Amino acid sequence: MLSLSMSQASEQALTAMEIMVKVDARDEGDTSVADSAMVLIDKRGRKRTRQLKQYSKKYPVGTKYMAIFLTPADLKDTVYINYDWDTSERDDDSWLYLPALQKNKRIAADDRSGSFLGSDFSYADLSGFELAWYDYELLSESEVVNGHDCWLIEYRAKDKYRDKVTASTQDLKTQTWIRKDNFVQVKSKIWKVRAGRIKYYSASDIEKIDGVWTVKKMQMITVKNGKKEHASILKIHNVNYNSFLSDELFKSENMQRAALIN
């Protein structure tokens, strides 16, 4: 009983910044390979499904990520690569390979707020989170989300990074709910620069796979002036961690070749 009380006291003693550091440091495996589906839902409830394969690999200087679209036919063999550098002073590097044009398109830092291939997820949503760009405030030490005790944290861009955050994310502020048992972000409310627009993120179907806490379903909903515009769901059907992945796979000059491996 004493150890439980001490554990709870230790949890409550964490600052908002300390919590977010633990979120950022959460084990996601040295490598991962996932079979996934992205479902796009319009305001009338109509759905379009896209199948894709996702790869990631950690390096001493950051994490490299690649997504290859398998279906539908008009997106087949489209490849997206992102280098999420650990330093906040270096912008991420991203490329999109479009098979119809047979060439790579580099995504500029101020284009990352754009929709990721028509979904409610932006390139910025997929490219990682820069801890040093924001100030954090602990709004609540205990809120229950789907039966799990969570911290509620709000964060906004620091003055010195405000222009960079606005250009790359179009976010004004974010409130996020963090599970205390595993430091997974299970819910977020994101106020956008465009007046009246808010995005709602949720994570569910969370389980431990190969020792890694894995979110198998992510949803992003876009709301304008209180009305739902559209939504996107990303589901992971199968994932493997810590298998060998060649460095060649993540080179931007190999994107056309990468599309052929599936």
Rank of each mutant, 00 (worst) to 15 (best):
R48D: 15
Y241W: 14
P72I: 04
R257I: 14
E130V: 04
P99N: 00
D159G: 07
Q175S: 04
A25C: 00
W177E: 05
D30G: 13
Y123E: 09
Y123M: 05
E11S: 09
S142D: 15
H230P: 02
N254Y: 01
D35Y: 12
D24H: 11
F183N: 10
D86T: 09
C150L: 13
V33T: 12
S7G: 05
D181N: 10
N182Q: 08
R90G: 00
L245G: 10
T169C: 00
R197T: 04
S142T: 15
D171C: 01
K164V: 08
K251W: 01
P60W: 12
R50T: 12
E28Q: 12
G128R: 00
D42G: 09
T214M: 06
G114I: 01
G118M: 13
L249A: 11
N104A: 01
A16Q: 01
V61D: 15
Y65T: 06
Q185G: 07
D84F: 03
T176M: 07
L75E: 09
Y134D: 00
S140L: 04
Y134F: 11
A124R: 00
D120Q: 12
V184L: 05
T49F: 11
D77K: 08
T63Y: 00
M6L: 14
G128A: 01
A9P: 02
M220R: 02
Y201P: 01
V165F: 05
S122K: 09
V193K: 10
I107N: 03
K224R: 06
E11C: 08
D86R: 14
D149T: 15
K76P: 00
I233M: 06
S119K: 08
G29H: 14
L139S: 12
E28T: 15
R162Y: 09
D30C: 11
K57F: 13
T31V: 14
T166K: 10
I68N: 05
N82V: 13
P72V: 02
Q12D: 14
M218D: 07
G147A: 13
W213T: 07
Y201W: 05
Y83K: 05
G114F: 09
D125H: 01
H237N: 14
K173S: 05
L249G: 09
K103T: 03
R197I: 06
M220E: 03
T31Y: 09
E11D: 11
I261R: 14
A132Q: 12
D247M: 04
S232L: 12
N254P: 02
A34D: 08
N240A: 13
T71S: 09
G118R: 10
